[in-house]
Simulated assay, not measured.
Amino acid sequence: MNMTGNDREMGKKIMAQAKFLGADISGIARVADLKDSPSHWLSEIMPDFKGVGTHLSDNKKRGIVQWREGAKSAIVLGVAHPRNRPELDWWMESPHKGNTPGNRQLMDVIGNLADWIEHKTDMRCFRLPYNIEKGGIYLKDAAVLAGLGCIGMNNLVITPQFGPRQRIRVVLVNAELPSTGSMDFDPCNGCDMPCRKVCPQKAFNSPIYSPAAYGRETLPGRTGVYDRFRCNEQMLIDEANVEAVYSEKEEAVVQRVKYCRRCEMACPIGRG
């Protein structure tokens, strides 16, 4: 599709506003491309999963995206979660709700951007929840198609700026905007993969998915070795080690869980 100069200028303005509102990285992907991306395509045929973070769904199987009618472009934002700020990823379960401080920050950024877009343009925004079962999409695929980075050997998005240490959210719009992706970036080639070696559950040790079985070369963990069931076992262990702490923000005692980030922290990319 041929894009006009106005379309390109609007895309630039949106990303500039995202940065102004607090996003560290941003990009745009076409919804048509997202629908054929690896996670969205594989979700139709992969085994069902009922682990930590999934929810009951009206779908016959969890993980299948319900696309918003009229959505044409995905605006992808990321906020850095540096090594020296681990508290951004601590899950806080309060009497009112549960979340991480970093995700709350990211929700504010993308919510404010959606408000700005609808106020300044005639576009309609589709604000998405994080969970697929509640109406979300696969964020890693969106990040790659928007040119933020690549999928690493640890099955996480790797960006040049921050490695795997960022969190990502998406807002969809009902307008065709020029895609900013994808990026010619793959730091995992030639790496000795410390991310895989450090996993306490050995979630990368054995092939789980094969190109022959799924008809694609691009598979979870890139080579079909990421075992999400083993990864979930570690999350359950982390939840069993929950801490009761007082939160000044909530003015109440909350339950704090520090989920495993070993494969993320072991990655040498973006440490500076």
Rank of each mutant, 00 (worst) to 15 (best):
V65E: 02
M193P: 00
P160F: 12
C125G: 05
E118I: 13
R124T: 14
Q201I: 06
E118Q: 15
C150H: 09
G98M: 13
A175M: 11
P82T: 01
H96S: 13
C188F: 10
R83A: 11
D115P: 00
W67A: 05
S182T: 15
T180E: 09
I158L: 11
D184H: 11
P200C: 10
A114V: 04
K140W: 00
P95I: 08
G78R: 10
L77E: 03
R169F: 02
A212D: 14
P95E: 11
M92Y: 12
D186C: 13
P211F: 01
I75F: 01
D89R: 12
K72P: 03
A142L: 06
P207G: 06
G102A: 08
A142R: 07
L88E: 02
G181E: 05
L106W: 01
C191E: 08
W67M: 06
R85A: 09
V171Y: 03
P211M: 03
M183L: 15
S73P: 07
E69P: 00
I75W: 00
N154F: 01
A142I: 07
G111Q: 06
D192W: 12
S73N: 07
M153H: 11
P200H: 11
A203V: 04
H96D: 13
N189E: 14
N103S: 05
A74V: 08
T121D: 11
A71I: 03
C195H: 06
N189W: 04
N103A: 01
P207Q: 14
Q161A: 15
T159G: 02
L88D: 01
E176I: 02
D89G: 00
W67F: 08
N154V: 01
M183F: 02
T180Y: 10
P164M: 08
G152E: 07
V157N: 10
T100S: 15
P160E: 14
V198N: 04
Y209E: 07
Y138R: 06
T121G: 13
A71H: 04
D89Y: 11
T180R: 10
C191T: 03
D184A: 15
W116L: 10
K197M: 04
T100L: 10
P211V: 05
S210Q: 09
P160N: 14
E118S: 13
V109T: 05
V170Y: 08
M107Q: 14
L148S: 05
R167I: 12
C188L: 09
A74D: 03
L172H: 02
R169W: 01
N154P: 00
K197V: 07
G163K: 09
W67R: 06
M107V: 13
L88R: 01
S73T: 11
P200A: 08
E133N: 13
A143R: 07
N103F: 09
E93A: 15
D89L: 15
C199W: 06
C191Q: 03
I132Y: 04
N174G: 07
D192I: 12
F162L: 06
M153P: 00
G135N: 04
G78W: 01
I208E: 10
V79G: 00
M183C: 01
I64T: 10
P187M: 11
A74N: 05
Q66K: 15
G70N: 07
R104L: 15
V198Y: 01
S182R: 14
G152P: 04
V79Q: 08
S179V: 12
R68S: 12
F185G: 11
A212V: 13
D108Q: 12
A146Q: 12
I137Q: 00
F185H: 06
P101N: 09
G111R: 08
C150M: 13
R196V: 08
S182A: 07
